[in-house]
Design a protein around this nucleic acid. Structure first.
Lengths: 208, 208
DNA sequence: GTCTATAGGCGGATAGAC
DNA sequence: GTCTATCCGCCTATAGAC
């Protein structure tokens, strides 16, 4: 489907504003102002604001899920794999720090968005295969005593939790301690390494 | 300062609605409807919606921070202390699962709220003392080799991240896997135990 | 204190000229 | 495709009767 230059600009401006202020706080007039056109044009292309929101939401969500689809570099053990995924997610969010909040927020307050997530999951067989493969590999490694017992879902949630929270906490941290943007970035990188250490220790097969 | 019964009811209804739908999506008319009065009365007591929001926000934030002020039970080692705080926070949020989202959301989108947080921190000397004491105790334990090297702030953020994220992820998890509320609660309790394990392994003094 | 009524503004959406 | 003009509805807030 071909899209005109103006339509692209509107979509781009909408994405920026949604990430800055959230969906609810952004009006179609705001979007038009940033593009430099009038408000009617936004409705001409997308008819309703809801359509626009849906599209931005889906695009961002797809991007995040697609990060999992990349092929693994060869010759990594599980500790290397964990580090690899942690790096991927931190790097992605570093580029768009407010994206996870927008998505989380929308998922929590709007049940129909969760329906959209299930659709995306179910449609993508490759993603289901990825999960299955990871699950099998983990189980084997646990049996061989290479890593400590853990559910696959728990490992993923552990990583996601620590990554997500880093970005939620970073701006608050920076403001509370009156630090600048550079210090905020350093904080996130520091948290990335702490995350790697936590996960590594979680997987290391030593007795409790 | 004495507050009338109606004022209490309005505050209560506002709190409920803000936690359910967020600040922006809740109108003063919504609040009046839940109370069973008319919308003008809300403004009679609080003059502006912003005042109401501020009050609810501050109250919830204070409650969360006050959880840290409780005296520790005697005779716990650091692993016990960690478990103790993890339990406190999980139990609190189990009672009001959407409170953290409301606060995080407001802190991220509204810079002036962060100013309020700093005020609360700075005013409460006892809280600063608590942090100082924890910091000292941790440093000593590290020197003695009882626990692995860790920054005090990192330990607190580790715990907060995992706790917070559990509640953000729980409703999404339940919807995606089409589980009911009971399963959702089980998920959170399961995550609580996983959190304890992670922190325990992080603190255990063993070589990497 | 509690009500009705209403002002005033903003947001989403559409009609219609060009 | 892009614009101006405008409708409609909801929101916050206030005025004023009781």
């Amino acid at each position: 489907m071909k899209t005109s230059k103006t339509e692209q600009e509107i979509l781009q401006a909408a994405t920026e504003l949604f990430l800055e202020k959230g969906f609810a706080a952004t009006s179609t007039t705001d979007i038009a102002n940033r593009v430099g056109c009038n408000q009617a044009l936004v409705h001409y292309y997308f008819r309703t604001k809801e359509n626009l929101v849906r599209q931005v939401f889906m695009t961002n969500l797809e991007q995040i899920l697609n990060l999992l689809d990349q092929p693994l570099p060869e010759g990594l053990d599980f500790f290397g794999i964990a580090d690899y995924y942690i790096d991927i997610y931190y790097n992605y969010i570093l580029g768009r720090p407010t994206a996870p909040l927008m998505i989380i927020n929308e998922l929590l307050t709007n049940p129909e968005r969760r329906e959209m997530v299930r659709e995306i999951f179910m449609k993508n067989l490759r993603r289901q295969l990825m999960y299955y493969n990871l699950d099998q590999a983990l189980k084997q490694a646990i049996e061989k005593g290479l890593i400590r017992q853990i559910e696959t879902l728990d490992l993923l949630i552990d990583i996601a939790s620590l990554t997500l929270a880093s970005f939620l906490i970073a701006p608050i941290y920076a403001d509370l301690l009156q630090r600048d943007a550079e210090a905020q970035k350093e904080f996130i990188i520091h948290r990335r390494e702490e995350t790697k250490l936590l996960i590594r220790l979680r997987l290391m097969p030593q007795k409790i």
